[in-house]
Design a protein around this nucleic acid. Structure first.
Length: 667
RNA sequence: GCCGGUGUAGCUCAGUAGGUAGAGCGCCUCUCUUGUAAAGAGGAUGUCGCGGGUUCGACUCCUGUCACCGGCUCCA
């Protein structure tokens, strides 16, 4: 037994340690029960990877303990829990074939090919079986194998064999989660071994795993759903079970509590409770009507955005909802999007279509007369109502609808002006989002997929230029930038702003797209300083993206408690008793004269009930008046958090609300 | 579009073995009501999503359809 040297890394220190050959990682962390795996950098390559605690140390290894509550630790815990779930499923449903089972944000899933989809009662049974496996304390034992041996061993698991065939190739990378099963390196199988040495279950897997099933402190199966094998709708649909696992019962409880809280903020629920909007069946799926209170918010949003566009040099224009279909051939959209457009209406010998986007019509405004370089950048903007035939399964509240309003603009610029205009647009967009209090977002750069040339038009050079310009501006913003290869529109790359909703789904909001194709298709031109005709570049930009979606995100962001400038009712006046109503009518009248949205609650509820109602409606200012206030010529404020401010002189009270509205602050 | 689930009063939900439906909140009427999250009494809620079928009889069983929910795929 020769000595080897390793380095143990902790958050704040590095410790050299001499030990004997054959020492396993767990021996280094025997005094820390929270360590469940190790991150090891091998001396030779310096590359770091996660290892089981049973990993045999090599000379020169740099080793860091991975605690369960860390990001890597959560992934390992959840991946191991996914294994336990798969074992339980095959125990209860022996014919179930395994798909893949990776950790995901806050949990894990595993896909199964089963004859009959799982029902909720099945999940309860599976959970029970899992608890039993966990209690047994089965060891996760890593075993290196070869492709040939694995294929032989996994004869009953066709999907796993398919994954082995993809190993290391592009296919594995393209299949979300597949890399946790087969990596680019050696192939391994994990055996779940009972205390008596029997192998209870095995799965092709890259690892690492917890030492034993007993180390799973808390888990819960969340739901079952279906998913296409390898994410391709041409493939068979597998049954997926989602679950979550945490380092403690408390952490699990907190997670479940967070989900509950998020559900309380769901804009669909709040939209009903606050009487903001609805989706009448009679109109059709994905088509919203805004009620008076929602209409106030929508109007304020529109007013503000219109004003800001004008300040930023845009011209407000208007275009119709339908057009002859030739326009979409000219723009190039129809071949790409015919399936997701509402079908044409034929009359007077033409096919008229409901517009799914505004740009072609703006192009016609540009082309309505000759343009000089002196006019550029020419910026056209409107609230364009567009309709898209979104597939039935994707319609979702206000965030995915079939009829939407885009705050859509098109900047026509010389190629030289393009970078500056994109910078201008990104600054504008981000400023606008911040004005609305939205700051939890990141940028995405959608580029073309070179392996699918038929999905994109234009030359490689044009794409390269356009992509570079967008990327430079996005990087300069300093915001998180996530690449989205293949996500570009057919005519050009885009930067988009992605924001999260209450239940963690991310939605595209603002977009900025660089388009060199439509100017070609529409033969757009301008006269340059040289007296020659030149082709402009057009830059598409939507600031909210979809007004409806942004509305939904705002509702969730504020949990319905809007800042005063957006609140449908800014002031709810509440008399202490009926006899003070007249006094409040008068105050309300003065407030309305100052441009405020005020209501007096003159119902025959008692005051306490009126306060409760205003509270539930999340009105920012409750204005209460009783005998003391009337005598003093004052009113009393109550805020949503229960704070009170009594005896405020009427003039001062009005000014206070006016100021809060003007500053767009939250109260 | 695909897989699964769910549609009962304005809202949230109950409804056991097929025998035409209930609760709370809200709503309406009346009485009451002076200080910061629910006064009291009485009353009405409804084509049980919609269409077919089985049955003496369907909210309940079967089937089609529409809508919603959770995923997957898609998203100009």
């Amino acid at each position: 037994m020769s000595d080897i040297k390793v380095v143990i890394v902790t958050a704040d220190a590095r410790e050299d340690r001499a030990t004997t050959t054959g020492t396993k990682a767990w021996e280094l962390f025997a005094d820390n029960a929270d360590v469940i795996a190790a991150r090891v950098s091998t001396g030779s390559t310096g590359e770091s990877s996660l290892k089981d605690l049973s990993y045999v140390l090599a000379d020169g290894d740099v080793v860091e303990g991975v605690e369960m509550a860390s990001k890597d630790g959560h992934d390992i815990l959840r991946h191991s829990t996914a294994h336990v779930m798969a074992q339980a499923v095959q125990q209860l449903f022996p014919e179930a074939k395994l798909g893949i089972g990776p950790p995901v944000t806050d949990g894990f899933y595993y896909d199964f090919d089963v004859e009959t989809p799982f029902v909720p009662e099945d999940l309860a049974k599976i959970e029970t079986a899992m608890r039993k496996i966990i209690k047994e304390g089965q060891r996760f034992e890593r075993r290196v194998t070869t492709d040939a041996d694995a294929i032989d061993e996994l004869q009953d698991e066709p999907y796993k064999i398919e994954l082995i065939g993809l190993k290391g190739g592009a296919g594995a990378d393209n299949t979300e989660g597949a890399s946790v099963e087969v990596g680019a390196g050696e192939l391994t199988i994990y055996d779940n071994v009972r205390r008596n040495g029997d192998v209870a279950w095995s799965d092709l897997c890259r690892g690492p795993h917890l030492p034993t099933t007993k180390r799973i402190p808390a888990f819960k199966l969340m739901r079952s759903a279906a998913a296409y094998w390898r994410g391709d709708e041409k493939n068979k649909m597998l049954q997926r079970i989602y679950g979550t696992a945490w380092e403690s019962k408390e952490a699990l409880e907190e997670h479940l509590h967070r989900i509950e809280e998020a559900e309380r903020r769901d804009h669909r629920k709040l939209g009903r409770e606050l009487d903001l909007f609805s989706f009448p069946d009679e109109i059709g799926s994905g088509l919203v009507v805004f009620h008076p209170k929602g209409g106030v918010i929508k109007r304020v949003m529109e007013d503000y955005v219109r004003q800001r566009h004008i300040e930023e040099g845009f011209s407000y224009v208007g275009t119709p909802h339908i057009t002859k279909d030739q326009l979409f051939y000219t723009s190039g959209h129809l071949p790409y999007y015919a399936d997701t457009m509402f079908p044409p209406m034929e009359f007077e010998g033409s096919n008229y279509m409901i517009k799914p986007m505004n740009c072609p019509m703006h192009n016609l405004i540009y082309r309505s007369r000759g343009r000089s370089y002196r006019e550029l950048p020419l910026r056209l903007f409107e609230f364009g109502s567009v309709y898209r035939y979104e597939k039935s399964g994707v319609v979702h509240g206000l965030t995915r609808v079939r009829g939407l309003t885009q705050d859509d603009s098109h900047s026509y610029v010389t190629p030289e002006q393009a970078p500056g205009e994109i910078q201008h647009l990104l600054d504008f967009v981000l400023g606008l989002l911040r004005d609305f209090g939205i700051d939890d977002f990141y940028l995405e750069l959608s580029t073309r997929d070179d392996s699918k040339p038929d999905k994109f038009v234009g030359s490689d050079e044009d794409w390269a230029v356009a992509t570079k310009v967008l990327e430079d501006v996005a990087v300069a913003s300093g915001l998180d930038l996530v690449p989205d290869p293949g996500g570009a529109a057919f005519y050009g790359p885009k930067i988009s702003v992605q924001a999260k909703d209450a239940i963690g789904r991310t939605w595209q909001m603002s977009t900025i797209q660089y388009d060199f194709n439509q100017p070609k298709g529409f033969e757009l031109e301008y006269n340059g300083a040289d007296g020659q005709k030149h082709q402009p570049v057009m830059i598409h930009s939507a600031k909210f993206g979809s007004l409806e979606r942004f509305f939904g995100v705002l509702v969730e962001h504020y949990a319905g408690a809007f800042p005063p400038w957006l609140a449908p009712v800014q002031v709810q006046a509440i008399p202490v008793a009926d006899t003070f109503s007249d006094y409040l009518y008068d105050v309300a009248k003065q407030m309305r004269a100052a441009g405020l949205r005020v209501e007096v609650d003159d119902s025959d509820d008692r005051m306490q009930k009126k306060i409760r109602n205003a509270q539930l409606q999340k009105v920012p200012f409750m204005l209460i008046a009783g005998g003391e206030d009337v005598e003093a010529g004052a009113v009393s404020f109550r805020y949503r958090d229960g704070r009170q401010d009594n005896g405020v002189p009427v003039a001062e009270a009005i000014q206070r609300v006016v100021d809060a509205v003007a500053s767009r602050e939250q109260v």
